[in-house]
Amino acid sequence: MAKILVFAEHNSGTVKGVTFEILGKLSSHTLEVVAFDGLSDDGVAELGKHGATTIHKIKGEGLDTYSPEGYANALKEVISSGSYDYVFAGSTSLGKDLFPRVAGMFDAGMISEVVEINFDGETFKGTRPLFAGKVLATVELDGPKPHFVTVRPNSIGMPDSAAGGSANVVDVTGNAGSIRAVVNEIIKGASEKLDLTEASIIVSGGRAMKNSDNFKILHEMADVLGATVGASRAAVDSGYADHSMQVGQTGKTVAPTLYIACGISGAIQHLAGMRTSKVIVAINTDPDAPIFQKADYGIVGDLFKVVPVLTEELKKLMN
């Protein structure tokens, strides 16, 4: 049994799903959680149910919002105090920025974005994709502890049950330390939806969308499904969609439960970024498009004819 600290990232109090994926998978180990202040009561209860024995809740000056140095400095103190074997976190936008810094503070190794978690006794043995998922490899850590691991959201899956108890909440006064790179402002993006890397359903458009206005029909379908809209590199490079929406090797690697590819032919670099999606639906006029080789359900047809009908059908179903 290893002693493991899991970082619980939350969005205005709501704990991110990947936290529960991690806790569920690690339930046979000694689990503690660290979070920055603002967790909801529900969040605290859920973390306990998912096996956290202790929640270290960090509060302190300069820690109300994210800054890489402030968060890293405050986390370092909690991690140092606990002689942990491993520290786990979600490979979210924040996790990707923060955890290499924290690992660096401990001169320790970190494995980014695993999609499988296994233990051989107390030793972590994971699987992670390389070359944007074109190959997978087994991966282990060496060197000073604690060892750091981040986990790709949606790749492990939610645990079937959560039979833990309630966690003991420990308030920690965090020290942000000296912050040299200061976040002055956050400019909200157009999308209030989940980020592509965390979305459980993605509706994506390719070059066949023809222009940015036409993405409206994908947004309509996404609204019905509670999905996030993505795009292929061809669509982004043609100026139809923002780069933050790009799925693929030079964009975001995603693992939703449902990926609906509209007018995407399926270049290697796109397939690499979405092939681990659980179920793939492809809509394309070219019956020989490579995307159909990866699709569970392929519709050979014109997306401008198919998508509106699909949206209506889904609307009926969701009501």
């Binding site: 790179a181 200061v182 993006g189 980020d195």
Partner: peptide
């Protein structure tokens, strides 16, 4: 510096 975060939002940083 402008840093892209989730959902296409931007954090604006100042540093030396």
């Amino acid at each position: 510096l402008r840093r892209e975060i989730e959902g296409g939002s931007i954090e604006v940083y100042s540093l030396k």
